[in-house]
Amino acid sequence: MVVLLKGSNKDLPVAVWFILPSFIGFAIFTGIPILVALVLSFYDWNLLNTPKFVGFENYDTLFRSDPIFMKVLWNTLYFVLGSVPLSIIIALFIAVLLNQKLKAIAFLRAGYFLPVISSIVAASLVWKWIFNPDFGIINDFLRMIGISNPPKWITSTAWAMPSIIIVAIWKNLGYNMVIFLAGLQDIPKDLYEAGEIDGANKRQLFWHITLPLLRPTTFFITIISIIGSFQVFGQALVMTEGGPGISTNTIVFYIYQNAFVFFKMGYASASAWVLFFIVLFFTAIQSKIGKRRGAL
């Protein structure tokens, strides 16, 4: 948008018309609610009675006297750290494998992409069975290889979060993989040919050609994954309802819980704005790193 406005492009009026519908949609369904949430975060409102202005009390409570919110922040960070690096590394690995001339390549690619388009609610329900400590396929396998006391997964405070991370990785893998594939196919073939002539082996080709040239792609995926991971909600709602206890209660789940279970709209809005600043913070850092390394 900004770029368009700067130049004296004669296509500009046409472009604006094309952007307009999406822009209006964004303003009505995202922009205005964001502003309303900002105002509401200074109010005490239960949806039923007239909102009461409370100043910074909601923020004050969040940071100073809500022991759950700190745990929720930590849970969210745990989720991000657990799911983002793994889902990127595995996605890259699979993308490299699938970037070859294999039989049934389209089928394999589609297979990895399938979780992305499947409904998170349905997928979570299936995963609940997979994680079943007694009948679940995972524990069946673990017992088969001799682990007599496998974890209780989503019903254990220690293993519930790893379970959700596993599902998240499975779910996001396909998306990251497709983006990586696109990135891989953009790398000119002659670079590899030149490398081979110079006597580089497969590993060297990967480290010195593939990885550096994929940097913009990796950067994009990292940002998108981190932003997405901070907003994890579906799995936590369907698989564990934030439990056991509060072990899988994440920021967005906590916002949902405050807004639509306890009907503390002001408090929920304040948490939402805290989340906004956290995401902004991480994106700013990444953007700095990215610029320095020339990814953008």
């Binding site: 609940k128 069975w129 994680f131 079943n132 400590p133 007694d134 209780k152 019903t155 056991p244």
Partner: peptide, 8 residues
Amino acid sequence: PDPSITSI
């Protein structure tokens, strides 16, 4: 049964 069973 404990909750690890009844949750599913």
